[in-house]
Amino acid sequence: MKWFIDLFTSTLGRKALMALTGLFLVLFLAVHLAGNLQLLKDDGGRAFNIYAEFMSTNPLIQTVSKGNFAFILLHIAMSVYLTIKNRQARGPEGYAITSGKSSAWTSRNMGILGTLVLVFLVIHLKDFYGQMHFGQMEIVEYEGESYRNIYATVSYWFDKEWYVAVYVFCMAAVGFHLWHGFTSAFQTLGWSHPKYNPVINFVGKAFAVVVPALFALIPIWMYLN
């Protein structure tokens, strides 16, 4: 087991954990978005509520969901650890001037962006996930089956201007986080090849723009309607 510990306590191993958990969260985002897009259906929330009920009761999904939380925590824990280590690696005295010309802003500020995403996550979990799992829910019936009306909760929040604004802002942070994080994960895992790098880059950048934009579109759309 020594090799296992050595691997995941090395800088490269820790970075690999960041990358692997990050990529998993990227997948999660895609799935989550697919569900959320049902909010755009003009059916009074029926499709969304059915979807939400399925997601919160299906045992397999629930297991994956627990894993998802674990990965988020692992991703955060590793990032905190590595950030501290990286700060220490600079040594006792920092530079008086750094030009910043040699690297992209997003790549240098993944910590700040990640923290913003975390703050969003806390609010988001409290208002939606927490409500769905632990709160008092209105019940609706579709074809004789009863469902918790999470759609009502969503419309409640997305009716508030400031909430929509915060949501959209946080989606921008997610976008910037992905802008660097997506391709960075591939680099960290060593998945780099001159033939495929352009594809990874394109997909990464497209994902970083399209997915958060669609997420942000939903509250805007609901607010306007």
Partner: peptide, 20 residues
């Protein structure tokens, strides 16, 4: 890699500043 870590260098966050 083990020696690099033991020397106290930081981890790569792919900013590409080194390459630039």
């Amino acid at each position: 890699v083990a020696r690099m870590d033991a020397e106290g260098f930081g981890a790569c966050t792919n900013t590409r500043a080194c390459e630039a």
